[in-house]
Design a protein around this nucleic acid. Structure first.
Length: 506
DNA sequence: AAAAAAG
C-alpha cells in the first residue's frame, strides 16, 4: 500500500514524496479514500498515529476544485489548544507546498486584526481554537455558511476542557450538508453522543495499536520529600544522573510551579525553557521552538504540553508532580519512547501522593518500579516532609534513601561531581555525545506519514525498514539505524491497548 | 485540587 493507491491528487503526492514519505499509516490508508469519497468519518486514534495527515492530505485534494469567498471559509478545523492548531497549519504548509491555498489560524493570544484581514480575503482552510473562532463570529466578521468540510479533532480532549458547548454552537452554524470528520482518542458516552449528532452515516475507522508495541518506556518512581526545595533537589539529582540523557520535558501540575521550577533550574545552571498557558503566545512558541531545535534541552511544562504536541522524541520525561488524573500520566510519558526508541519516565513521589499513584498503576495495569526505596520503605521520620533529613540534600552525599538499586545503577557511571555541569553541556552535540542517534532536530516527530527509505534497501526483506520521520532535510542522514518503524512511527505502550479496569475509583 | 481557552 502506498500513498499513490489512495486516490490523492498529483500535487499532494508530489508534496508527500518531497517530504520523504511513501507509506501511509493505518489511519491514513483507512480514512483517506473515504474522505475523498465525501463520506463522514469517525476516527478513533491516538495522536501520533498519523491522524493529522489523514485529514490534511485528502482535504488538500478536495480543495483543488472551487474557490474561497470573502469571510466564508471552505473548510474548518477545530483544535483544543493553540499549539495543536499551529501544528495543523504546519501540516498544510508542508503538504500543500504545490497548492496555492490560503490557510488561516484563528487562536487566542495573538493579534485579532491580522486574522481578520486574512479571513476578509477569503480562506480555503480555517484552523481554530473555539474561543477565538466564536469571537470572530460574534463580531460578525466570519460566516460559516460556506463550510463544506468540518473537522473536529481531539474531541475527548475538547470534552475534558469544557469545550463541548462551544463545539455544539459552532456546529449549528455550519451547513447541515457539510462533510464531517470527527477524531477522538477515546469514545466515552458523551463523545459518542456528540459523534451521533454531528456525523451522518459515518465510516468508523479505528486504528489497531501496533501489536508489537512492546513498552520502550522505562518507568521509575523516585521517593522524595513534599517540600519544594527537596523536590527540586531530587529532580536535579535525577537529571544529572540519568543515563542516555538528551533532553527532557518536566511536568508540573500548576503553572506557578512551572515558573518556580523553571527559575530554580536556571539558577542552578540548567538550560531550561518554560511552557504553560499563562505565558504569552510568543513565549509559548519560542520555548517550544527552542526545545524542538535542541537549543534548550529541558522544558518545564504544564499539561498543555502533555498531549498531541509534535515535539521531537525526548529521551526523558520527569513528572515533578504526580498528575491529578491518571490519564494525564499516560499522555505525559507518551512524550518519550516514541517510534520504537527507548525513553525514560521518572515520577517524583512525595508523601501524600500514594492515592494518585495507585490510580495510575490501576489505569496502566501494572505497578511501577521504584528507583531506590519507596516512600513506604523509608525509615521512620524520613518520609516526613520536614524531618530535616539532610541526606539527599547534602551535595554529593549518599544516604539510605539513595538505595541499593540506585547505587547499583550508578556504580557504572561517572561520579556525580563529574556530571554536575551536564545541563549546560547538553547543548553541544560534539561534547560527550557518544550517542549514535541523530541530533535532536532530526528526531522523529509525530503526526507524520512513514518516511521513504533513503538508500535502496536490499530487495529481499519483505516490508522495507522504515526510518522514523525526520524534521528536516531527509537527505542529510545516511546512518540508518535499521530500526523498523512501520507507518508513522509513534510508539503506543502496550498497556494502552488493554481495557481499563473500572475499579479503583473510590 | 489543575490546566486549557476569549479578554
Amino acid at each position: 500500500m502506498s500513498f499513490a493507491d489512495l486516490g490523492l491528487s498529483e500535487k499532494v503526492l508530489g508534496a508527500v514524496a518531497a517530504a520523504g514519505y511513501d507509506q501511509p499509516t493505518p489511519i491514513q490508508s483507512q480514512a483517506i479514500p473515504h474522505v475523498l469519497a465525501r463520506r463522514d468519518v469517525l476516527g478513533i486514534a491516538q495522536t501520533g498515529t498519523g491522524k493529522t495527515a489523514a485529514f490534511v492530505l485528502p482535504m488538500l485534494t478536495l480543495l483543488e476544485t472551487g474557490r474561497a469567498r470573502a469571510r466564508m471559509p471552505r473548510t474548518l478545523i477545530l483544535e483544543p489548544t493553540r499549539e495543536l492548531a499551529a501544528q495543523v497549519v504546519e501540516n498544510f504548509e508542508r503538504y500543500g507546498a504545490n497548492h496555492n491555498l490560503s490557510v488561516a489560524l484563528l487562536i487566542g493570544g495573538v493579534s485579532f486584526s491580522d486574522q481578520d484581514t486574512k479571513i476578509a480575503r477569503g480562506v480555503d482552510v480555517l484552523i481554530a481554537t473555539p474561543g477565538r473562532l466564536l469571537d470572530h463570529i460574534e463580531r460578525g466578521k466570519l460566516l460559516l455558511t460556506g463550510v463544506e468540510l468540518f473537522v473536529i479533532d481531539e474531541a475527548d480532549r475538547m470534552l475534558d476542557m469544557g469545550f463541548i458547548p462551544d463545539i455544539e454552537r459552532i456546529a449549528k452554524l455550519v451547513p447541515f450538508t457539510r462533510q464531517t470528520l470527527f477524531f477522538s482518542a477515546t469514545m466515552p458516552p458523551e463523545i459518542q453522543r456528540l459523534a451521533d449528532t454531528f456525523l451522518h452515516n459515518p465510516v468508523r475507522t479505528e486504528v489497531a495499536r501496533p501489536a508489537s508495541a512492546a513498552t520502550t518506556i522505562t518507568q521509575r518512581l523516585v521517593a522524595t520529600g513534599a517540600d519544594g526545595h527537596e523536590k527540586r533537589e531530587s529532580l536535579r539529582d535525577l537529571i544529572r544522573n540519568s543515563a542516555d540523557f538528551k533532553n527532557a520535558i518536566i511536568f508540573c501540575n500548576r503553572k506557578r510551579e512551572v515558573a518556580i521550577l523553571h527559575k530554580s533550574l536556571q539558577k542552578h545552571g540548567f538550560s531550561a525553557g518554560a511552557l504553560h498557558g499563562d505565558l504569552d503566545q510568543r513565549a509559548r512558541m519560542a520555548a517550544l521552538d527552542k526545545f524542538r531545535t535542541g537549543e534548550i534541552p529541558l522544558l518545564v511544562a504544564s499539561d498543555v504540553a502533555a498531549r498531541g504536541l509534535d515535539i521531537p522524541a525526548v529521551s526523558h520525561v520527569f513528572n515533578y508532580d504526580v498528575p491529578h488524573h491518571a490519564e494525564d500520566y499516560v499522555h505525559r510519558i507518551g512524550r518519550t519512547g516514541r517510534a520504537g526508541r527507548t525513553g525514560h519516565a521518572f515520577t517524583l513521589i512525595a508523601p501524600g501522593d500514594e492515592k494518585s499513584l495507585a490510580a495510575i498503576e490501576s489505569l496502566i495495569g501494572q505497578s511501577v518500579e521504584w528507583q531506590g526505596p519507596s516512600v513506604a520503605d523509608l525509615p521512620e521520620g524520613e518520609s516526613r516532609p520536614r524531618s530535616g533529613r539532610g541526606g539527599r540534600s547534602a551535595r554529593g552525599g549518599r544516604t539510605e534513601r539513595t538505595g541499593r538499586a540506585e547505587r547499583a545503577e550508578r556504580s557504572e557511571k561517572p561520579g556525580r561531581g563529574e556530571r554536575s555541569a551536564r545541563p549546560r553541556r547538553e547543548r553541544s552535540p560534539s561534547e560527550g555525545r557518544s550517542d549514535p542517534r541523530p541530533p535532536i532536530h532530526e528526531e522523529v516527530a509525530e503526526e507524520r506519514p512513514a518516511r521513504v527509505r533513503e538508500q535502496p534497501a536490499p530487495r529481499a526483506a519483505s516490508p522495507a525498514p522504515q526510518e522514523p520521520g525526520r524534521r528536516r532535510n531527509p537527505r542529510a542522514d545516511s546512518s540508518d539505524d535499521g530500526r523498523t518503524v512501520v507507518g508513522l512511527g509513534d510508539h503506543v505502550p502496550a498497556f494502552l491497548a488493554r481495557p481499563v479496569r473500572p475499579k479503583s475509583s473510590a
